[in-house]
Design a protein around this nucleic acid. Structure first.
Length: 887
RNA sequence: GCCCGGGUGGCGAAAUGGCAGACGCAAGGGACUUAAAAUCCCUUAACCGAAAGGUUGUGCGGGUUCGACUCCCGCCCCGGGCACCA
């Protein structure tokens, strides 16, 4: 008989809700330590959860429950990242308001989450689409709009401090306003974007497929310059790199962030254009190769292209520039790495040796990085080398590689050659010397560059936070006063953006259609003004939600400073768990916002997430027939040794893949909870393998953990069919020892996030009880407490039936002692030349000499010792004896 | 191309310098049962052997060590990230 999981799970979920068991009070007992354990909150997709989502949630729930039992004040909240393109598109396609679908999706996903019995404090639930939430997202945006990055202080400061400073320098009126607007952390600029005319919006890079089409709907996407809201994240590039050393994150994630920011050091060098009064400024990380520069390249968008191109080359250059501008991502991909370019006709002068070198225009140089122009050193740069080969440009060696390596295409460090007075210098020293020399002559200077770009922060859609900004013809962009927040999304019957197939048509965001909303007055001068019609991107709400959880209903501040200080000191969120797909963007954006808020004095620390843990992806089996068509599970017969089609008997190919609708391999928690219960699902999620690893879901393995829970049930209560519980007055000493071992190991496993071995340890304990046939009541109780974080419903029920009327959620975690772990004798394997040949039993207290003597006398090892000389005797206390023999 | 992970029984895995395969699934056998399910017990890396036992074995090839899944060097395969970043 299986234990009645449905009944008891329902019962305890109701009990927890009725008794507010997991409510974290607003004023917690300050004598206890705090622990903030957070999941990356989900986007409420219409498909609901699959079994991959609860793996992280289960892990954090185990930690939360364990920490409560260890006496911590635990904060464990959940909410929804509910703005975004899928809801917008669904609304457009089905004519349903996105608020309606969002609410419906949240209701479904919350039902699924609650079904699993997680100990969230539901009173703190938030949704980023709630006006009382996005009011503060808008408020934080205004903080950025109203501040600038002071490079001297290396931090954000109120914009008034900049105004003061510039006014003192004599700026005023329109000129002052432009200067100030140009320094805000949130500013407007014309930038190249991914424009999707069919969706009527700009898309983020990750919303664009490798084929250059929209992820959603598969529409063409074009590169195009549009005026957009930008956030000045590049000002924080250095601090975002440096402060990675403050956090306990996986090295791989830190590395990805470092690579994404892509800091490099080098020099900017001026190359005068021969016969003109302009000069080309280039950025190079290898100023030591200056003598090897044999040509230069400007990006097609570079402003000097038009000025320096000679009349006879004008037509060809113009044609190339136009073609490059029109090039979509698709063409760029398909053309691969084949280099193209045209000669501008102009010559530049190499400042170190006066040589005249040709200036080319080529799209392998990007306008968005460095200065948009390079000096090409084909001998020591792979790309320049390819280009020089193709166009027959000279290749001059200036670095001597280590012996045995070809200098052509050598990009490493070496010794300078053909470099005038610098010959013989090693690369690193050469860089320093020449940078200083260039600086002294006014030809260049030390420079730092980043791959990181400022963050394009606007979208031309309906379903996002409206910007708290109005555009005034006399004052420019003006922030709304705080008392006008939240600026609510206007009601709209038709939120379809005006779409077109013309890539050059201007964007017409749906908010523009609500005239009554868009037309307003300027808060600064009272004149007529228009509201900003763009909305914020999906990332906005998730940049600060972890702060709102601390004080979710505060109507006068985004978070109370005292509460922020309590929960976020000293290292921010104590454990943050989520998928590695957010390694860069979400985690980088949130760190950026946190630093801005920190600079402006709104939060106490520099980093939001002290410890980060990435759960691995759960994938599942997919089946395909001969034609490659995916077959859903109800049509797959797994009873034989090969998977076959139920109807046709055709043998199917099996593979393990990411769950997706198109592969027909999505497994949802619902059916599993119904059949085996939430506790079984939770346990299998953990038992399947290490949390951080990628692993295949196999529903056929769920009965294994379900059987274990049944064994626990019968161990304590017996069953209706007459099986007696194993509870007894006395149990062998071995059980107490096993229990102490279990308590110790489980605590350590939870702290180190090794939940799979924790489950195995509990199974071992129960197996031991079945083997000896008895367990004392007090031992069963302690076991139930250890099981509780993993299988809380079953544990509560057993705890209750063992005579405790209240929930075990805040029972102290049971104690273990070293004394109880001690066995009287040890079994020590005896190796001869590294191979196990026998075993000896020795008293725990036995000294090295006694153990070695026993090992030498070990009968099983004797034949391998006979007639040989023991050269070396190794004893690893309590573990192993190795006898090294020869002869 | 570059940068990270990873490769252990039929399967998910454990062991991070000290008994390889804990724990679980699947498979086989037994007990209970009129029978089945459920449950309980046993076997289960491969090869040789009737058994006792032996040999081999952690992707491949070398090395360090008394001892290597674990550390070092070279290679192969799989997964992920970045991708003309000057």
């Amino acid at each position: 008989m299986a234990y009645p999981h449905s009944e008891i799970e329902k019962k305890w979920q109701q009990y927890w809700e009725r008794n507010q068991t997991f409510r974290t009070p607003d004023d917690v007992d300050p004598a206890r330590p705090k622990f903030y354990v957070l999941d990356m909150f989900p986007y409420p997709s219409g498909h609901g959860l699959h079994v991959g989502h609860p793996s992280g949630y289960t892990a954090t729930d185990i930690v939360a429950r364990y920490k409560r039992m260890k006496g911590f004040n635990v904060l464990h909240p959940m909410g929804y990242d509910s703005f975004g393109l899928p809801a917008q598109q669904y609304a457009v396609e089905h004519g349903i308001h996105p608020r309606v679908t969002t609410e419906r999706n949240i209701a479904n996903i919350e039902r699924q989450i609650k079904m699993l019995g997680f100990s969230y404090d539901w009173a703190r639930r938030i949704a980023t689409t709630d006006p009382e939430y996005y009011r503060w997202t808008q408020w934080i945006f205004l903080q950025m709009f109203n501040s600038w990055f002071d490079p001297g202080a290396r931090k954000a400061r109120p914009i008034a401090t900049l105004e003061e400073k510039l006014r003192a320098q004599g700026l005023a009126g329109e000129e002052l306003r432009r200067a100030v607007d140009g320094c805000r952390l949130a500013y407007m600029a014309e930038v190249p974007v991914n424009w999707c005319p069919a969706l009527g919006t700009v898309l983020a890079n990750e919303e664009v497929t490798n084929e250059g089409r929209s992820d959603r709907g598969n529409h063409p996407v074009y590169r195009r310059a549009l005026k957009q809201w930008m956030l000045r994240i590049t000002a924080y590039a250095d601090r975002l790199v440096e402060d990675l050393k403050l956090v306990d994150w996986p090295d791989s994630i830190k590395l990805m962030q470092r690579n994404w920011i892509g800091k490099s050091e080098g020099a900017e060098v001026l190359f005068p254009v021969a016969g003109a009064d302009s000069a080309i400024r280039v950025y190079t990380t290898r100023p030591d190769t200056l003598y090897g520069a044999t040509y230069m390249v400007l990006a097609p968008e570079h402003p000097l292209v038009g000025q320096i191109t000679t009349p006879e080359r004008r037509a060809e250059v113009a044609a190339y520039v136009n073609a490059a501008a029109r090039k979509s991502e698709v063409e760029r991909m398909t053309e691969g790495k084949e280099k193209t370019g045209v000669f501008s006709g102009a010559l530049a002068v190499n400042p170190v040796n006066g040589q005249k070198i040709p200036v080319w225009v080529a799209d392998y140089v990007m306008m968005g990085y460095g200065t948009g122009a390079i000096m090409a050193v084909p001998a020591h740069d792979t790309r320049d080398f390819e280009f020089a080969q193709k166009f027959g440009l000279p290749v001059v060696q200036v670095v001597q590689p280590p012996a045995g390596e070809d200098w052509r295409g050598f990009v490493g460090d070496g010794i300078a050659v053909n470099s005038g007075a610098y010959d013989g210098l090693p690369t690193a020293e050469f860089k320093k010397r020449i940078t200083a020399d260039l600086e002294a002559k006014g030809l260049g200077r030390y420079a730092v560059n980043y791959k990181l770009r400022d963050w394009i922060f606007s979208r031309q859609w309906y379903w996002g936070e409206p910007f708290p900004i109005v555009h005034c013809s006399s004052c420019g962009p003006v922030g709304l006063p705080e008392d006008q927040l939240p600026l609510r999304l206007p009601e709209l019957d038709d939120f379809t953006p005006e779409t077109t197939s013309d890539p050059d048509a201007p964007p017409r965001p749906p908010l523009g259609r609500v005239k009554a909303w868009a037309d307003t007055t300027c808060p600064a001068c009272g004149g007529p003004a228009t509201r900003e019609l763009n909305a914020m991107p999906q990332w906005a709400g998730s940049c600060w939600y972890y702060l709102r959880f601390l004080d979710p209903r505060n109507a006068s501040r985004f978070v109370d400073p005292e509460r922020e200080k309590y929960w976020m000191s000293p290292h921010g969120v104590d454990l943050y768990v989520g998928g590695a797909e957010h390694a860069v963007l979400h985690l980088l954006y949130a760190r950026f916002w946190h630093k801005v808020l920190h600079d402006l004095g709104h939060v106490s620390g520099p980093e939001p997430f002290g410890r980060l843990f990435n759960q691995g992806m759960i994938r599942s089996f997919a089946y395909r027939d001969r034609r490659g068509v995916c077959i859903s599970y109800d049509k797959v017969d797994l009873s034989g040794d090969r998977p076959r089609h139920v109807d046709t008997g055709e043998e199917l190919a099996e593979s393990v893949e990411k769950m997706s609708k198109s592969l027909k391999n999505v497994v949802t928690p619902d059916g599993i909870v119904q059949e085996y219960g939430a506790d079984s699902l939770r346990l299998y999620e953990m038992f399947i393998g290490p949390l951080e690893g990628s692993k295949p879901w196999n529903t056929r393995d769920v009965p294994g953990v379900h059987r274990f829970l049944n064994r626990v049930w019968r161990m304590v209560l017996g069953d209706e069919e007459g099986a007696l519980p194993l509870l007894a007055e006395q149990a062998p000493e071995e059980i107490e020892r096993e229990l102490h071992r279990l308590i110790k190991r489980t605590g350590e496993y939870i702290e180190s996030m090794k939940f799979n071995t924790a489950v195995a340890a509990m199974m071992e304990f129960v197996n031991a009880v079945y083997r000896v046939g008895s367990v004392r009541r007090d031992q069963a109780e302690r076991f139930v407490l250890v099981l509780a974080p993993f299988a809380p419903h079953l544990a509560e029920e057993l705890w209750n039936r063992l005579g405790h009327p209240d929930s075990l959620a805040r029972e102290p975690w049971p104690a273990w002692s070293a004394e109880h772990l001690q066995e009287e004798t040890l079994e020590i394997p005896v190796q001869v030349n590294g191979r196990v040949r026998g075993r000896i039993h020795v008293p725990v207290a036995a000294g090295e000499e006694d153990v070695l003597a026993a090992a030498l006398a070990c009968p099983e090892a004797a034949p391998f010792l006979a007639g040989k000389t023991v050269r070396k005797r190794i004893y690893i206390p309590g573990r192993m004896v190795n006898l090294v023999v020869a002869g």
